[in-house]
Design a protein around this nucleic acid. Structure first.
Lengths: 241, 241
DNA sequence: GGTCGTATGATTGTCAACAATCCGAGGAGT
DNA sequence: ACTCCTCGGATTGTTGACAATCATACGACC
């Protein structure tokens, strides 16, 4: 009966603030390059600067915030090369996740979950709701990774999916609406599920990589995951340590 | 001449402390399960509790520290299933890195760097220095990832390599010394370099995966990356948010 | 006119004290 | 002997104030 009586309150204030900040960055409420004033944010969250700073340090280590000493914290801004980098990393993570799923026992259950996401995509398309479509798209990939059961893949993917959404909302104003038909995107996802159901690991991975490559070419025309060298990434003051 | 005159001091105190803590966790100075008392650590680092907490929050978000509210922060302890999870994630990351390198222009240069690491491994073996051997082994993989030029792969790998070393130092006392000859390990690395030099992407990736699988089977006998289901991971109070 | 020095304002970095919470020991009661 | 309650000690969580640093604007000087 009392199955899900999780321990109460087991979440630090810093964790809560961090999640809210992540959401704000993801949805575009805090556009790339925005400076995060500590005093202002502390007032908005109704907490002191201590917990707020702790939350921001988390995002720094996740790579979502850039810290300049005595200057402030800024939302990272994505350069052209980052699109390649993000999707390259996503490809690696999701490939591993998909591999684990297809080799696991409950392929069918996972496929069902993924089906729901794709259905939501189609539904969003019918209603002409690009936001919901993106949401469902990301949920597909999120579900895939969660189904892998890997804590580390999940942690890595969380940041990557946030950055993906940053890319999308940064470029969604560029071209009118749907550069390519969404039907194609839905089909791609369905093919992946199909291969997963069939247990055909090889073609599933191929489809997944092709899916990623399509996304890169859509977002950053001219570059490709399968092409030769990667676009350069400026390696300046990233507070990696 | 003045090429690398990086802006001075561009490193926050929290970043410095975080790095030192990472090193301490990695080398085993802070064994898994250790509770990190804030007052004590603050005294050791000669800073106040503020910056120290910020540093610890970074490690929490990286998954190296586990936070229990009003209880304290603890170094994560690796359960059996974690070995699989770590190496599975490492396999994904290094696979992507290697792919980017083999498709890039400077295969030869990277191969040279990797050669150095392998030579250091052989040298450490001659001198019967298992610590140096592990160090060189990890440097190989670190160099491979750095050569990929991907900021995100590098960030993900940093945590994974720390955890790898935690596994090693946790289990190095289990069996006498070198369960399997180190010659084999050296050979495996050399074969990877060889395939990289030749530009043979397919066999390079196969060798890399085999290398990872060997490591898993050495550390956690019975499990394999290529086998079916992954060992279960208890999914309790991980402060993922 | 242009460049350098200086003052100002605001922001971040740091600290020590206060409040809230939790764990364990001890004792009263059944 | 067992359970429950209470209290003390210790630790974490939070706060507001202080010190250090930097960007900007203004004026002096060449």
């Amino acid at each position: 009966m009392l199955a899900d009586i999780e321990p109460v309150n087991r979440e630090s204030t810093a964790a809560i603030i961090a999640r809210q900040l992540r959401d704000a960055i993801m949805t575009g409420s805090l556009p790339p390059g925005t400076q995060l004033g500590e005093t202002e944010l502390a007032a908005r969250f109704q907490v002191s600067r201590g917990p707020l700073r702790e939350a921001m340090q988390r995002l720094v280590s996740e790579g979502l915030l850039r810290s300049e000493r005595h200057r402030g914290l800024f939302v990272i801004d994505l350069e052209p090369g980052d699109v390649y980098d993000i999707y390259s990393a996503r490809s690696a993570v999701e490939r591993a996740a998909a591999t684990r799923v297809v080799r696991s026992g409950d392929r069918e259950r996972v496929a069902g979950i993924l089906d729901e996401a794709v259905e939501a995509m189609a539904h969003a398309d019918e209603q002409d709701d690009p936001t919901a479509l993106t949401e469902a798209d990301l949920r597909f990939h999120e579900a895939l990774i969660e189904a892998s059961g890997s804590r580390r893949l999940a942690r890595m993917a969380r940041t990557l999916l946030i950055e993906t959404r940053m890319c999308l909302s940064a470029l969604q104003n560029t071209y009118s609406k749907n550069y390519q038909g969404v039907d194609e995107r839905v089909t791609e996802h369905n093919k992946i599920i199909e291969a997963l159901r069939a247990g055909d690991e090889e073609s599933m991975l191929a489809l997944l990589e092709a899916h990623m490559d399509d996304a890169v070419q859509r977002l950053a025309p001219g570059t490709s995951l399968h092409s030769g060298a990667a676009p350069g990434l400026t390696r300046d003051g990233v507070d990696l340590a």
